[in-house]
């Protein structure tokens, strides 16, 4: 059965089982291997992509569900000018990745968060990012990198904010 959708701005039409998850279509049929397999049950977030701008777990999204829709993967996160997305730049500046396997998913969740909410609070970040597991445990760096890319804060303020928040629990 033929399915047609947009991936990173390019229209794709594929003959594929409509129940095949988007993850495996991307990885096996479109050679877009930046999106990772981690659990298969929407528990770890390694497979996160944008569907019409929203962060979605591609491992449980049947390809039929993206008919006619816009899919963005980590390969399409750069700007149209080819420059890194500000979050990708922040990820490098904060030396976020260790093994790096979860980071495509982390970046897709974080970029969806910032496009909906340019100045997220700590609890906004918790809510948007807690679907993404990082077994290397780089949560502190992810949080800092998101905040450095948000509209308001600066690094020093953030540190004091975190400490103050802890002290007044």
């Amino acid at each position: 059965m033929s399915t047609s959708f947009w991936v990173n701005g390019e229209q794709r039409t594929l003959d594929v089982d409509p129940s095949k998850p988007l993850l495996w279509v991307l990885r096996e049929q479109l050679a877009l291997t930046g999106t990772k397999f981690g659990c298969g049950i929407a528990q770890c977030g390694a497979c996160t992509v944008h569907i019409d701008g929203q962060a979605m777990r591609s491992c449980v999204t049947p390809i039929s569900r993206v008919e006619g829709r816009q899919v963005t993967t980590i390969e399409g996160l750069r700007g149209d000018d080819g420059d890194l997305h500000p979050l990708q730049q922040a990820w490098i500046e904060h030396q976020v990745p260790q093994c790096g396997y979860c980071q495509s998913g982390q970046l897709m969740s974080a970029s969806a968060l910032l496009s909906n909410n340019p100045n997220p609070s700590d609890s906004d970040i918790d809510a948007a990012m807690s679907g993404n597991i990082c077994r290397c445990g780089m949560y502190g760096r992810i949080r800092e990198a998101i905040k450095s890319s948000s509209v308001a804060s600066t690094s020093d303020e953030k540190l004091f904010y975190n400490v103050a928040e802890v002290d007044h629990v």
Partner: peptide, 14 residues
């Protein structure tokens, strides 16, 4: 090893 880990280009065995 970090730049290739922010744009999906890092090559894992998978």
């Amino acid at each position: 090893d970090i730049p290739a880990k922010v744009d999906g280009s890092a090559q894992f065995a998978l």
